[in-house]
């Protein structure tokens, strides 16, 4: 296991982050403060509608905060001139509903984020094969998502999230659509990938037992972080 970096500049730092919808009538985030060091595994928990997924979207630049500051390695994220490049090179998304593209095979889905990164066709193919092997799906590379089980789909999605070797993995309820057996397999895979490669991971979950696999748990309520503690299981 690679321990979290203790460098002075956090990988991500949020201060007074708010996000309002419908002209301020809905306050999804009401001033969130936290920082994430490189290599940390953080779980964000809380009841439905507490703002977990909204926060994850802001971290992945899928959405813009209404106010507050959000820094990535010390640079302001909302002010980035090329959010797509940030998403492509720095972020890997794992969604609850997998969000694989139905008309592409497993290998092709893994190649999708690599377009525009300067990799040649053969490099893209090799990288996709390598990642599918990593998630144990080398024999399913030519299968379309409709021919894969839920667990297999999520493993393809995990392989896709790693395509460009991102520094930060963002997972939104990654086991939410899986049965308990597959949920444990996927969670084990995520933890293994995080620990072996020392990647920073932020995982949103409403399940406390899953959250305990992380090193640190942020608990949210009504758009705010109400507690920020080390996981009791890891004791870190």
């Amino acid at each position: 296991m690679i321990p979290p970096s203790s460098s002075a500049v956090p990988l991500l730092e949020a201060e007074g982050l708010t996000r309002a919808f419908d002209d301020g009538q809905v306050q999804a985030l009401r001033g969130v403060d936290f920082s994430i060091q490189e290599g940390e595994f953080i779980a964000i928990t809380g009841p439905s509608g507490c703002g977990k997924s909204t926060l994850l979207q802001l971290l992945g630049l899928l959405d813009q905060p209404t106010s507050g500051t959000l820094l990535y390695r010390g640079d302001s994220l909302p002010a980035l001139r090329d959010p797509a490049a940030y998403r492509a090179s720095e972020i890997g998304f794992i969604f609850q509903a997998f969000h694989l593209l139905p008309t592409f095979t497993a290998a092709e889905n893994v190649q999708i984020p690599m377009f525009g990164t300067g990799r040649s066709l053969s490099e893209r193919r090799e990288r996709a094969a390598e990642l599918l092997k990593l998630v144990g799906l080398e024999d399913r590379s030519d299968h379309f998502p409709s021919k894969l089980s839920g667990g297999e789909r999520q493993r393809v999605a995990i392989a896709r999230s790693l395509a460009n070797e991102p520094a930060l993995l963002l997972a939104d309820e990654p086991t939410g659509n899986l049965d308990s057996k597959n949920a444990h397999l996927i969670l084990d895979l995520i933890v293994r990938l995080q620990q072996e490669h020392g990647r920073t991971m932020v995982m949103v979950t409403h399940d406390p037992s899953i959250a305990e696999r992380a090193g640190r748990i942020l608990h949210m309520m009504d758009g705010k972080v109400v507690s920020d503690k080390p996981s009791p299981r890891t004791g870190s």
């Binding site: 899928l62 797509a84 492509a88 998304f93 999708i112 377009f115």
Partner: peptide, 16 residues
């Protein structure tokens, strides 16, 4: 729409 949003989420530029 969903597919295009996924492409944007995984880092495709709008120009692409």
């Amino acid at each position: 729409t969903h597919e295009i949003c996924v492409l944007l989420a995984v880092g495709w530029k709008r120009s692409r």
